[in-house]
Each structure stands twice: as C-alpha cells, then as structure tokens.
Amino acid sequence: MVASYFLSDPSVLLSDLVFGLLLGCVLAVVAHGLNMIWGVVKVVNIAHGEFIMLGAYGAYFLNLYWGIGPLASAVFDAAIGFLVGYAFYYVFLHRELRGKETVSLQSEMVTLVATFGLSLVISTLALIIFSGNVVGIDYDPGTLLLGPVSVPLGGLYVAVVSILIISGTYLFLERTFIGAAIRAYSQDVTATELIGANPAKVASLATALGFAITMAGGALLTVFISVGINPLMGTLYAPISFVIVVMGGPGKMWGSLAGGLTLGIVFDVLQAVATPQIAFATGFLLLIPVLILRPEGILK
C-alpha cells in the first residue's frame, strides 16, 4: 500500500505534500499562542484547545450574523483574546507567579489542574450554549492550479497569515523594547526589573498576546476545517498544540512553524498511506522521542 502510494501519479503526491504544508502552517498558528505563554511565563494552559474552539465559534457567528469572512474575523478574535488573556493571567497565574523567580513544581501542578478544570467548564458551557451540532463557515475562495498541482486558495491565505503572525511576533520580541522585556522575563524574572519593567505587567502582556494569537488561530482554522466547528474540538487541537510546541521548543517563535510543518506532513502523508488513526497516534507519539532526544531544557 505504501509503495503503491509513492509510485502513484507524482502530481497526487505533490498535491498531498502541498496540502500537508498548508495544514502545517495552520497548526503552527493554532499552537503559536501556547508557545508564547509557555515560553515566556513557563505555564501550560491545558484549556488552550477550548480557546481555539471559542475563536472558531467567534468566526462562525461573525460570519453568520454579519457575513464577515474568517480572515477578517481573526482580527476581532484577536482583540477579544487579548482581553481574555489579561483576565486569565490575573485569575489563574498571578497568584502563583507573583514575586517568584522560577515557577515551582507546585505552581506548575496547580496551574495544570486548574486549567484542566477550566477546559471542562468552557467545553460544557459551549455544549449547553452552542449545542453539540457541528457547524461550519461557507468560505471558499477557490483553487489555484500550478501546473498539475492544485492549491486551495483559502489554505494558502491562512498559511500566509500564519507565517506573518509568527514572523511578526519574532520581530516584536527581537526588535522592540517591550519585546526585549518579554525575552528578559522568559530567561530570568529578576532581569526584567533590571531593565526597568514590571514583571507582572510583562507576564500579563505576554499571556494576553498568547491568547490573542490563540483565538485568531481558531478563526483561521475554520478555513481549513470548513465543517468541523464543535464544542469539543479543543480536545484534538490542544494535544496537537502541545506536541508542536515541545517539538519546536517552548519560547522559540519559529519553533511553532517547524513543529507545525512536521506534524502537518506526518498527518497528511500517514493518512494517505495508512489510516487516520495511525496518523494521529504517530503524530502524538512523536512527542516522546523528541523529549528523549532533545533534552535541552526538557529533561531537567
């Protein structure tokens, strides 16, 4: 089966590869907000997937009532996500992080469990309010034919926006004063004070940015999964995001893209040559060898 796939028409193979790369880009942006928070604040939001889901519903309702396309909705989602991120920081993280130089294992456990609870609360509320029905956005800008390879234009737009967002955050962190403060915080909390910034303000800003990107990512995702918006979609995209961030390395902005593209291609190729189950299982299990073989900052 595998051999026959690779011996088949090369244009099919190329189209699949292109699709895998586009999928990788959207997965990258979906994981990118988590990367930001994990890398800077050193806390993992287990409810990450639920905020992706909320972003997707945001795009759905903006489209349903005002006919706004998913790309434009991403901007609205980002604005909401920014505010939600601040609230999240002060409710869930501030008490645990305030005045501490490093995140203790105890705090890590508290935030893991609390955000696990949050994911249950949000997805249950979503089930009650949105109902369990799967919805989608009717948005299809068509297909671009590059010789024998067909490229879905929607996916291409999302990939471009995704790369713009990732490079934007990279430049923001590298080139601006606030970005420098965020980088200082991520390496050494006390260093933030040395360059004259308030650690809580820096951490909350990074969290807010992470949420803005996460919810925008949810909107962008709707282009790809045209009929897959449902209250429980977070349970798939959260673990995908975890794997991507670990693969790329928390806090490395381009890591999201590296991890996303790897996973996108693994999913896409394995689905073609094997089954979706094998593809998902392999994609998730990739995390283990990455954790073992790339132990810098991971094992200790």
Binding site: E108, L112, F242, F284, L285
Partner: peptide, 14 residues
C-alpha cells in the same frame, strides 16, 4: 512537571 503531564496525555490519545 508539565512534560510528564503532557506525555501522559498524548499517550492516552495515541
């Protein structure tokens, strides 16, 4: 810490 938690989660999904 969090790496164990996430590894256990992805194992369940796999």
């Amino acid at each position: 810490g969090v790496y164990f938690a996430i590894a256990s989660l992805v194992l369940a999904l796999a």
